[in-house]
Amino acid sequence: TEDEKKIQELLKRANGDVSKAEKLAQSQGNEELARRLREYANK
Protein backbone atom coordinates (compact mmCIF):
# COMPACT_ATOMS: atom_id res chain seq x y z
CA THR A 1 0.00 0.00 0.00
CA GLU A 2 0.95 3.66 -0.20
CA ASP A 3 1.45 3.79 3.58
CA GLU A 4 3.72 0.77 3.52
CA LYS A 5 5.84 2.48 0.88
CA LYS A 6 6.11 5.56 3.09
CA ILE A 7 6.93 3.42 6.10
CA GLN A 8 9.63 1.52 4.24
CA GLU A 9 11.05 4.78 2.91
CA LEU A 10 11.23 6.22 6.43
CA LEU A 11 12.82 3.03 7.74
CA LYS A 12 15.40 3.20 4.97
CA ARG A 13 16.23 6.79 5.87
CA ALA A 14 16.47 5.80 9.55
CA ASN A 15 18.66 2.77 8.75
CA GLY A 16 15.98 0.38 9.97
CA ASP A 17 15.66 2.14 13.32
CA VAL A 18 11.94 2.22 14.04
CA SER A 19 12.05 4.86 16.76
CA LYS A 20 14.11 7.13 14.51
CA ALA A 21 11.69 6.56 11.65
CA GLU A 22 8.82 7.34 14.01
CA LYS A 23 10.49 10.62 15.01
CA LEU A 24 11.00 11.45 11.33
CA ALA A 25 7.30 10.95 10.68
CA GLN A 26 6.38 13.09 13.69
CA SER A 27 8.80 15.81 12.64
CA GLN A 28 6.99 15.90 9.31
CA GLY A 29 3.78 16.42 11.29
CA ASN A 30 2.51 12.99 10.35
CA GLU A 31 1.18 11.47 13.59
CA GLU A 32 -0.90 8.95 11.66
CA LEU A 33 2.19 7.60 9.90
CA ALA A 34 4.11 7.52 13.18
CA ARG A 35 1.33 5.42 14.71
CA ARG A 36 1.30 3.06 11.73
CA LEU A 37 5.07 2.72 11.99
CA ARG A 38 4.70 1.61 15.58
CA GLU A 39 2.07 -0.97 14.60
CA TYR A 40 4.21 -2.10 11.66
CA ALA A 41 7.22 -2.53 13.95
CA ASN A 42 5.21 -4.57 16.44
CA LYS A 43 4.21 -7.16 13.84
Rank of each mutant, 00 (worst) to 15 (best):
R36S: 07
N15H: 11
E31I: 10
D17C: 05
A21H: 00
Q28L: 14
D3S: 08
N15P: 01
L10T: 03
L37W: 00
K5D: 12
V18W: 15
L37Y: 01
N15R: 07
I7M: 11
E4P: 04
R36I: 15
K43T: 11
K5C: 11
E9I: 06
E9H: 06
L24T: 04
Q8V: 12
R36A: 14
I7P: 00
V18Q: 03
V18T: 05
A14Q: 03
K23T: 06
E31T: 10
S19N: 12
E39Q: 06
A34I: 08
Y40G: 03
I7G: 01
Q26L: 15
D17M: 03
E2P: 09
K23Y: 08
N30E: 13
E2F: 13
D3F: 15
L37M: 06
K12S: 08
T1M: 12
L11K: 01
R36F: 08
S27V: 07
K43C: 10
E39K: 03
K6E: 15
R36W: 10
K12A: 13
N30Y: 13
L11F: 03
V18R: 04
A41L: 13
D17V: 04
L33Y: 02
E4W: 15
Q28N: 07
N42K: 13
E2D: 13
R36D: 05
N30I: 03
K43E: 09
E9V: 05
A14F: 15
R36N: 06
E9W: 06
E39S: 04
L37Q: 00
E22A: 15
A14K: 00
K6F: 13
R36H: 08
G16N: 07
E39Y: 04
E31R: 06
D3W: 15
A21T: 00
A41F: 14
E22I: 15
R35D: 09
A41H: 08
Q26R: 14
E32S: 06
L33W: 05
E31G: 06
D3V: 14
K43D: 08
L33S: 01
E4K: 07
G16C: 06
I7Y: 05
A41I: 13
L11D: 00
V18P: 08
G16T: 01
E39N: 05
R35S: 07
Q8G: 05
A34P: 01
E9P: 00
K5L: 11
Y40A: 04
D3L: 15
D17A: 02
T1G: 11
Q8Y: 12
E39V: 04
G29V: 02
S19A: 14
K23W: 12
G16W: 15
S19F: 11
R38L: 06
A34Y: 04
K43I: 09
E22M: 15
I7W: 04
E32M: 06
K6D: 14
L10D: 00
E22C: 13
A34L: 09
Y40I: 09
E32V: 05
A14Y: 10
K5S: 10
N42W: 09
E4Q: 08
L37N: 00
A41Q: 07
Q26F: 10
E4C: 14
D17F: 02
E9C: 09
G16H: 05
E32P: 03
A21R: 00
L10V: 05
L33C: 04
G16F: 09
K23F: 10
E2G: 09
L24W: 14
S27F: 09
E9Q: 08
Q26A: 11
K43Q: 11
D17L: 04
A41Y: 14
I7E: 01
I7A: 04
S27Q: 15
Q8E: 11
A34E: 03
R13N: 09
L10E: 02
K12W: 10
R13L: 15
